[in-house]
Amino acid sequence: MKIILNLIGAFFVAILVWSFGAGAVEYLTSSHEESVEHKFHEEPLDVSFPSDGALGTFDKAQLQRGLKVFREVCAACHSLNQVAFRSLTDLGYSEDQAKTIAAEWPIETPSINPETGEAATRPSLPIDHFPAPYPNVVAARAANNNAVPPDLSLITKAREGGAPYVYSLLIGYRPVPADLPEANRPSTGLYYNPWFANLNLAMPAPLTSAGQVTYDDGTEASLPQMAKDVTAFLIWTAEPTLPARKQTGWAVILFLILATGLGYMAYRNVWIDQKH
């Protein structure tokens, strides 16, 4: 029995050592060039948001500015499927203001004609989620040079690098470097952006000039400002419960530290007459 198990062990070890040898030979004999994507790729910029850190929460004025950027720039191509207009009250809007924003949103909610039953649209209500710019994936693909604009509801959670990545990408469009190999140069309909994984993405620079959006609160709409505001807005859309999470967290952990401290003292008390 034991001999058989020893032999099985020897068998696995032999194969693995053999595989290692084969791999090592190949590794040593082949050349290792850094891939072009790796060489030109940039790490997300160092940027901070009010929601960062253990005490972070949202800056409502910034979220309102971000909503405006989203509405005037992003919403033409990107959906925001998970978010309902009613939750805009989180941004400091009243219920009536949220209702107005929903009703005046540039895209209407799909509906049916109540008389004929044919497909139609109607102004959105607070209970509706943000309507998508395209009725389905095929339409989105057709309208965007075969690239589907992703839903932005969770984008800051759904990308490695999170919010700083989104921010970096928005302002990361650069002229194509002279030393970029031909195979990695953007073809028609693609744009060079070293923050994107394969360096070329189908989205043209969304933020092109300062003042592209006119802020209601008088903040100067520089490119980094707009990118930062809309990214902050997208942090909110990805996790509107973030402030509640952090506040609850503090209360829970402080309570647990107190309880555990008492628990430790009680534990020492119980053991006081026992050697261990």
Binding site: F255, L256, L258, A259, L262, G263, M265, A266, N269, V270, I272
Partner: peptide
Amino acid sequence: RRDFINIAALGVAGVGATI
């Protein structure tokens, strides 16, 4: 004093569980 700490620890644990 020890009894008090034991009771306090149990009480706090009970409050936490309830919350």
